[in-house]
Design a protein around this nucleic acid. Sequence first.
DNA 1: GTGAAAGCGCTAACAC
DNA 2: GTGTTAGCGCTTTCAC
Lengths: 329, 329
Amino acid sequence: MATIRDVAKLANVSTATVSRVINSNGYVNDETKKRVKDAIQQLNYLPNDVARSLFKGRSKMIALFVPDITNPFFPELARAVEDVTNQYDYTFVLCNTDNDIEKQMDYLNALQQKSVDGFIIVSSTIKKEHLQHIQVPIVALDRIISSDISSVTVNNRSGSRQVVQYLKSIGCQRIAHVAGPEHVDNAIYRMRGYLDEVKEEAWFNSSYVVSGKYNFDAAREAAMALLSELPEVDGIFAGNDLMGAGVLNAAASLGKNVPGDLAVAGFDGIAIGETLTPTLTTMAQPIYEIGAKAAEILMTHIQSLEHHVTAKEYSVKLIERQSTMKGGF
Amino acid sequence: MATIRDVAKLANVSTATVSRVINSNGYVNDETKKRVKDAIQQLNYLPNDVARSLFKGRSKMIALFVPDITNPFFPELARAVEDVTNQYDYTFVLCNTDNDIEKQMDYLNALQQKSVDGFIIVSSTIKKEHLQHIQVPIVALDRIISSDISSVTVNNRSGSRQVVQYLKSIGCQRIAHVAGPEHVDNAIYRMRGYLDEVKEEAWFNSSYVVSGKYNFDAAREAAMALLSELPEVDGIFAGNDLMGAGVLNAAASLGKNVPGDLAVAGFDGIAIGETLTPTLTTMAQPIYEIGAKAAEILMTHIQSLEHHVTAKEYSVKLIERQSTMKGGF
DNA sequence: GTGAAAGCGCTAACAC
DNA sequence: GTGTTAGCGCTTTCAC
């Protein structure tokens, strides 16, 4: 690989001049500029980013922490972040954390040693204290970390209320909830939204809420038990789509017709909802948008070196599909 | 951030000694080693990886190119690669290429400027010529680039033959194929495997093969047309699971019972196959394993600086599910 | 308008 | 065993 010195030599100038040319910085005579550009071309010269990073103390890299990229909610988020990252000529580092605090701390350190310029973090275990030693901007995504860290989220609670209202509106009389993990804030908001709408109902009691841990299998099991125990349930709001799929599968196994006997709605709006049979009604997040927004905010923080906290909350939107279309399916 | 000089000063030694301690390199008196370690602790010192990279010309980063992480085949692959990467104390860079050759070239250049130590590439557009200027090891994954580049793949052709044989064995008389894109080598192998098994059949003609482009919607449309035109089809081998899901959906729309009227099998073994109704029979790749293997091979190449080409082919395995279980479902 | 030189933080000869 | 020193390739004052 050619270096700046090779270029300088070939163009008969100093390295400073070459640097000025490649960075369009300071005055350079048009004549010499051309000589330098020719030399660059001829040598196929590309500046060494590592040397630049060392000098500048910044690397033009940002990192995204997700619990697990194989969870179908995250790829779209990652895609959005990568697209924006790339658009700003930054490099995108992906870290699967499994929500393990130690793993996250290791990543934070390792990446700081690499002068990573910022972090976008989806985590339900990282707290403000864990980030005290981080010198670069951070944006929390999907889940809030603390009020002094910028965040991008959705209206989980009111969105969930809307789902339940919708289920009522199509005629459901007994609506159960398959909830996400208790230690994940958005799962709690979704459950609260559900409770807001049902806690005053005469029929309601706590056995209408079961735990599905945000995954397919657990939700399937939970729904099997729930539907056996409370056969009068005619509507289920699953805290995410993956659990919604589990509920559909459980219903099929029990010979329950969806949506005839049972209406099912999920939350998130991930792509697989459309591939299921019946297709799954869901309260959709603008997943790509929130990912892209988080990246944009991070870029703003990085470039201004200013830390004005912004907390953006997007609205979710109901997408009606076969799993609740009592008339049409 | 403290530097090696701060540590040296505090411990009353030279930077060379500190370097020896942090790299467990060369002889250092136990006494002074302790002093250095204390100083490191006290200052919370972490070596600057950028400076190291500049000196060494290597960055301890590797990059994975995938067409699009939102395609459900890739997250598991990415997860595997990241796990291995992390285990070797490397940093993982993810690039969505959309199979766009220009984007891929840009990434290659940008990452070379960052001294990335190696690439794992899933691409149907990159050819050997595009990689001529790359100085670091490359491993091709899922799709072969050229015979002198290490690769990890599966037996697409014989695996596909097995799927068709299996469909015959459960009684299918007219088996159609929804094929992937013509410019993707593994899609071609899968189609050939299918043809190997049916081209001598009296009933066979080319209208039994339709194109589904490896995606849900195209496959759904193709299957709708196919099933309308050739109602005698009682078995479909879809070139991947995403298209298998499309076929299932099409069948449901047409009121065809799966597996009663029509058996459906896919290829890949991605997780959503289990969430469908009926669940989808598939010829499963060991996705995580092949991703991990590719990463291991890359690490070997990186560490030995030797370029012994290895081409590993894994075997796929049939997973029988409801979409073909004529008896049980 | 251009060049000389210092320095980003580290490692590895090479001395002693 | 430990220190001195010369870079890795770049950017940026500060001269001229």
